[in-house]
Amino acid sequence: MTAPLTPVALGVDQARTRLPGFTVIDVRTPGEYASGHLPGALNIPLDHVRRALPELRDAARRGDLLVVCASGARSDTAAGLLAEHGVPAATLTGGTNAWAADGHPLDRPAACDTRAGWSMERQVRLTAGTAVLLGLVLGLLVHPTFQLLSAGIAAGLVFSALTDTCGMAVLLGKLPHNRPRATDLDATLAALRER
């Protein structure tokens, strides 16, 4: 019996030096991917990884896979799923956020641009701040129960920080202005087969 695969986590510098040898899979939503992704990355959202297993397995046989997301949480999940199916993959510690923070370029092709002019992080800050302010004002002027809205948003932000996830970003990503177009998974898988 073979030992189960364990995904390897690479730092930004390690990933950068090995980038030409990787097939990079970005598991974020299409809107997040369009806002900036590692050069040459293909977008296979996390909820489509199972469907892409045959192509990902073939790609891993031809070379190394690097799975990325915004912070590393979703890519860890994807790499774990791949490992369960015998597909070795590395992840980028800190995700595209760490990549960009180190000053490395992100591709933003015009064909994938969202209609939103603001980054997802800025949209989350605006939405959370507005909801907290609205809860406080309505709590003072209408009924104190409205302050629960502010408390709920605060609890969500704490949970988001502790788990390194953002449910509000996922919800905002579903809005029409944040969706460039649906992921053309068939085209992505065809491109993956050609690599």
Rank of each mutant, 00 (worst) to 15 (best):
residue 114 T to E: 01
residue 77 T to H: 12
residue 37 H to I: 05
residue 32 E to P: 13
residue 96 T to V: 13
residue 23 T to F: 02
residue 46 L to P: 14
residue 86 G to K: 05
residue 105 P to F: 10
residue 56 L to V: 04
residue 82 L to A: 10
residue 134 L to W: 11
residue 65 L to F: 07
residue 31 G to F: 01
residue 52 A to M: 03
residue 120 M to R: 04
residue 114 T to P: 00
residue 109 P to H: 09
residue 130 T to N: 06
residue 116 A to P: 02
residue 111 A to Q: 12
residue 96 T to F: 03
residue 47 D to A: 14
residue 83 A to E: 07
residue 110 A to N: 02
residue 49 V to I: 13
residue 101 A to Y: 09
residue 93 T to A: 15
residue 94 G to R: 00
residue 107 D to W: 07
residue 120 M to K: 06
residue 44 I to T: 02
residue 52 A to Q: 01
residue 107 D to A: 15
residue 38 L to W: 02
residue 103 G to D: 05
residue 59 A to G: 10
residue 54 P to V: 00
residue 118 W to A: 15
residue 77 T to I: 08
residue 74 R to D: 04
residue 100 A to S: 11
residue 129 G to H: 11
residue 67 V to T: 05
residue 24 V to F: 04
residue 97 N to C: 07
residue 62 R to H: 13
residue 68 V to R: 07
residue 88 P to N: 09
residue 78 A to W: 02
residue 81 L to T: 00
residue 86 G to N: 07
residue 111 A to E: 10
residue 114 T to A: 10
residue 55 E to S: 14
residue 110 A to Y: 04
residue 35 S to A: 15
residue 114 T to H: 01
residue 110 A to C: 09
residue 79 A to L: 01
residue 58 D to F: 06
residue 68 V to G: 11
residue 36 G to Y: 05
residue 88 P to Y: 02
residue 80 G to L: 09
residue 120 M to D: 05
residue 120 M to N: 09
residue 49 V to F: 05
residue 129 G to K: 11
residue 39 P to S: 10
residue 56 L to Y: 06
residue 82 L to M: 10
residue 56 L to W: 04
residue 78 A to G: 11
residue 125 R to H: 13
residue 129 G to A: 12
residue 55 E to L: 13
residue 54 P to T: 01
residue 63 G to F: 01
residue 37 H to D: 04
residue 61 R to Q: 15
residue 52 A to R: 00
residue 105 P to D: 10
residue 120 M to T: 13
residue 57 R to M: 09
residue 87 V to D: 07
residue 122 R to L: 12
residue 100 A to G: 10
residue 53 L to M: 11
residue 130 T to R: 07
residue 134 L to R: 10
residue 113 D to G: 14
residue 82 L to Q: 11
residue 82 L to T: 03
residue 58 D to W: 07
residue 37 H to N: 07
residue 104 H to Y: 15
residue 71 S to F: 03
residue 81 L to W: 03
residue 134 L to C: 14
residue 113 D to A: 15
residue 27 V to T: 05
residue 36 G to S: 07
residue 91 T to S: 09
residue 104 H to R: 13
residue 79 A to G: 02
residue 69 C to I: 03
residue 38 L to Y: 08
residue 89 A to K: 04
